[in-house]
Amino acid sequence: MLERVRARTDVVLRASPWFLILVLIAAVQVIRGQPFDAVLFGVGAVAIAVDALAGLPARATAPALPLTAVIVVAAALAVVLVLAPRHGVIEGIAVAVVGLVAVPLAWLRRPGEAPRPEDSAAVRRLRVRRAAVGWAFVVVLACLAELYSFLVGRVTPASQDPPPAISALLDPALEGWPGRILFVVGWLALGGLLLKLWRRPDA
């Protein structure tokens, strides 16, 4: 009984930072006046909280697909996302379809990975922890700069040259082909790296 409570507490503590991150992002979306984005992250935060507190089953694994199939689908998506008018209906449908597939799949364990409570390689754990600290520092710094720029930019007239948010910096680049292609390919590649739906040799 005590072990179960301890294990559940551990799960809740590990999930808490991610819950808080989604809550903060949802709050920023509220400030932006973007209800869809706010609800998206709010629901995500609730889902993480419910999962951590209720201990929903974690045995299900996402399907493992042939790498060729993953590449073909990604390439087809890339063509649509690059050619369709930005902020248009077709673009919206394509991105929505990606989300409807990818986000539920994220709820499942990635294919080819057996459940392991702890990595036994201490050295590898230390290396990963060092990388995590480094990347966390970079991400937090970028997010703070972005948040500051966003908040100041909202209350500063454009004529006074407010600090730029990342979105404002990248937006012009996405209007041109090179920037658009780079973003779409990078976005899909990152999604592939996160989900890793292809069969691995050891799977």
Binding site: L22, F41, R86, G92, V95, A96, F183, L190, G191
Partner: peptide
């Protein structure tokens, strides 16, 4: 994954 998807939505659609 949720944040990754939102990045696509934010820059391409929303």
């Amino acid at each position: 994954v949720l944040f990754w998807w939102w990045l696509g939505w934010h820059f391409l659609v929303g």
